[in-house]
Design a protein around this nucleic acid. Structure first.
Lengths: 324, 324
DNA sequence: TTGTATGCGTTATCAG
DNA sequence: CTGATAACGCATACAA
């Protein structure tokens, strides 16, 4: 099946390609009879525009890149959901890039931006350094979904340090002083903030910082179960956990059940996100407007004045349920 | 910042654009000194290829479309994970299209194929009719992730009818005859197969088909909880549930706990997928190689002879745990 | 209101 | 081994 192009339409309709292009793009100033002739020609040859050609000609693609470590983690798929919903309003298609936190893959995403394949790029999380990422700003808007201190790159997040502190204060108010915590990725910016809050808080209430009480690479239910299992091996045992997300909390709860431990009597658990599973399991958690983050990220990309407001902070909210 | 093009490189290096293109594409037959001159020119002008131009010239984009109703449902994000992993091997980028089962959005995806923006399209699920989709095959490979009877469109799936029957037989062997079931989307092909198996099996064991025992639109934890709540209102109550996926099963279990019902004593629950939550909650479930489906879908797209094997069937496996 | 000509940045053919 | 030149398909400034 042959794909007709704009030239063939023009000749069949007895007009120039410019006129065809005009009716294609709904320009004013094209005589009605010609417009009709063109439309009939398009109909007859089953004409449809070649999008790549349009992109080359216009120098823009309406494609938005999204880098994320893994789509299977609910936190990220929810951000993507938000990005997708907002993207549709702006007529943007999403190019998804799963990186597993491999810097090379993140660089590939950046190269797509430089290569003009995507008009903008959202990092839902990252492993690459800011200095590297900044370099690519000249090729298109980039936004980070993290609680960043710098202002050269737009970012959007909840204030993680505050939120974590708030969680700790809540646990302390409930009588806990021996508090362990888990992180998704120790090296991440958000994790860094959370650790900051932890150290500050522990110092304040005169508790030592125990390295064996911080668990890295905790993102899934299985990770949560693994943490609970290692809890049993601890010589000194914490009485409360402040964890990465609801999945990890769920894993902790499931594993606790295996050994007939009582939540929150034996161990209190507070998590982040407030995903559906948290409500279903009565998990106490700190709500994060994740989908909203995705939406705002797209809006930030679309803003022409990327310089105007570089750092967007969203609210969090502690939800009291039955695990603390 | 100006983006240099191939012509500028050519003139700076004192060669033709053809030669530049040759070193760019690592062609043989280009003299070493010229190659070096070109490379130095590229270095000096910080040259990087424009991907859109390449795509237009080559008539191919290395972009693969993926349509799915919602990325938040673990079943779909896991397929995407498989697609992403396999896609990376073939140097494919993913264009994700969330449709919420709206036909218009599926049509948009098909238009991207026709417009040459994507080289192929994977339907992880669909609402549009096969007749419509078939029309677009001329513009690129399309593959369906469903248990399809037709052979004009390539498809990949587990045999849902067999699998559902297997599940029913297991429940029956455990002494159940009053069996309810849930579906993700009644109109979907896979659901259709499941319903077929149900009707056949109920007839076989001389049980009536009760419309109030089939629950539509069940995909999430919340849906599962909702179903359990409506169970209480049933005049005639089933003793077992065969449900869409592990999330729905989890919802049933959580809701059951609210009213102190015992699983499996009061109600048996068997689900599909075997996602991590199933192991964590000791859910009896029918394992589906979801990620593998995604991988195979990409492989099927890449195969030149789309006619060769149009229907791929993957194995399923019943995992006995503690909810039946 | 319309057409011509040029540009977008590559690749590929073909002659040399 | 190299270069001129024609695609690829569309948009658009400019002239008419």
């Amino acid at each position: 099946m042959h794909m007709a192009n704009i030239r063939e339409i023009a000749s069949l309709a007895g007009v120039s390609v410019a006129t065809v292009s005009r009716v294609l793009n709904e320009h004013p100033y094209v005589r009605e009879d010609k417009r009709i002739a063109v439309q009939q020609a398009m109909e007859k040859l089953d004409y449809h525009r070649n999008l790549t050609a349009i992109h080359l000609s216009k120098g823009t693609t309406n494609l938005l890149g999204v880098v994320l470590p893994s789509i299977e983690i609910p936190y990220f798929s929810k951000i993507v959901e938000g990005i997708a919903e907002e993207g549709i309003k702006h007529n943007l298609q999403l190019v998804l890039m799963q990186t597993d936190y491999e810097i090379d893959k993140e660089l590939e995403a950046l190269e797509l931006l430089r290569g003009g394949l995507i008009d903008g790029l959202i990092f839902t999380s990252r492993a690459a350094s800011l200095d590297i990422i900044k370099e690519y700003q000249q090729h298109g808007p980039i936004v980070l979904c993290e609680d960043s201190d710098q202002v050269e790159l737009p970012s959007i997040s909840i204030p993680h340090e505050q939120a974590f502190q708030h969680g700790l204060e809540y646990l302390i108010a409930k009588g806990h002083t021996k508090i362990a915590y888990t992180l998704g990725r120790k090296k991440g910016t958000n994790s860094y903030k959370r650790s900051n809050a932890y150290r500050r808080m522990m110092t304040k209430i005169n508790q030592p910082i125990r390295e064996e009480w911080v668990f890295d690479k905790c993102l899934s239910i299985e990770d949560g179960m693994r943490v609970m299992e290692s809890w049993h091996k601890l010589t000194e045992k914490p009485t409360a956990f402040l964890v990465t997300n609801d999945q990890v909390a769920a894993g902790l709860v499931f594993a606790a059940k295996e050994t007939d431990m009582l939540i929150p009597e034996d161990i209190a658990i507070l998590s982040f996100d407030n995903q559906p599973i948290a409500r279903a399991m009565h998990l106490s958690t700190i709500d994060i407007p994740i989908k909203q983050m995705g939406r705002k990220a797209v809006q930030s990309i679309k803003k022409t004045d990327q310089s105007k407001k570089n750092k967007i902070s969203l609210p969090f909210q502690l939800i009291e349920r039955k695990t603390v």
